[in-house]
Design a protein around this nucleic acid. Structure first.
Lengths: 144, 144
DNA sequence: GCAATTTCGTTGCACTTGCAATGAATGCCG
DNA sequence: CGGCATTCATTGCAAGTGCAACGAAATTGC
């Protein structure tokens, strides 16, 4: 009964755009390299942080830990990552890229940069950086 | 190797935030009203446009048409929407809210506005409108 | 007017996902 | 030290999802 406009509702807007961009980008690696979005996300994390636990990806990427766990299992089965239990805390699983995994990431990263550039071109530099800034702020949870 | 920073990669950033906000918001209606995110999205569309086809929601909300179709089936089973075939074009299915559906939407909308307000408060007005503006722009420039 | 093509929504099927429960390992605190 | 609570990652299971295939209906081009 009110002035609610779906197209301006943030969760909706974010979901639509996330779906579109993730899908658009995944088209670039999906069939060519045979990995899914969830798997790419795990790989990307590993390429950033070297060796990471399931828990950390779960928290940072907002993926359910079972989703991370299973994506990791699939990647391991493909020989792209290694899983070994941390000797200091044997509950933890240390994920890391294998050589093949690193090689794959190195093939995908240029695609990621290209896609990023294309999106920025669509937006224009001013809006692009404003978007980035706002998204970062939202992530932190505050207005700082 | 490169200057790729996952936290600044747009598809990733959007996916993380979309997941977080959708989940956070859905917590407000999910168990209370027993509907899922997909179902809420269909309801929200109907509340905006009166009577809509599956195809339109599919296109605008970036939901697979089977996802829309099945969400609609579940909503119909719950008596929240009505499905009738368009007499002018009998391939089309016209979705519309039932009275019960309208009543449910009227209960959820205040929650949506409250959540929206909270997010805006987190961001601050300047960033909030910048975000909105950028997201709108991305929507227009994207693929259909 | 009719065959070929396109559009629309649904469905079969394999796979993924979310959630809760589990097992293993650690931390806590008396 | 020893029991209890907590933290991790995995897994069972039901439900949801994506994709391709399908049937029905409309549109196109001849």
């Amino acid at each position: 009964m009110t002035d609610f406009v779906l197209d301006e509702f943030l969760p909706y807007q974010l979901a639509v755009l996330a779906e579109r961009t993730s899908r658009e980008f995944s088209a670039l690696y999906r069939e060519r390299f045979g990995i899914s979005v969830a798997e790419w996300r795990v790989l990307a994390h590993l390429s950033q942080s070297g060796t990471v636990g399931v828990r950390e990806i779960h928290a940072r990427a907002a993926m359910d830990k079972s989703k991370v766990s299973r994506a990791a299992a699939r990647l391991q089965a493909q020989g792209l990552i290694a899983k070994k239990t941390d000797p200091r805390d044997r509950r933890l699983v240390a994920l890391s890229l294998t050589d093949r995994g690193r090689a794959l990431v190195d093939q995908i990263l240029p695609l990621a940069r290209a896609y990023e550039a294309e999106v920025e071109a669509r937006l224009g530099p001013a809006r692009a950086s404003a978007l980035r800034e706002a998204l970062q702020a939202l992530q932190k949870g505050g207005s700082q």
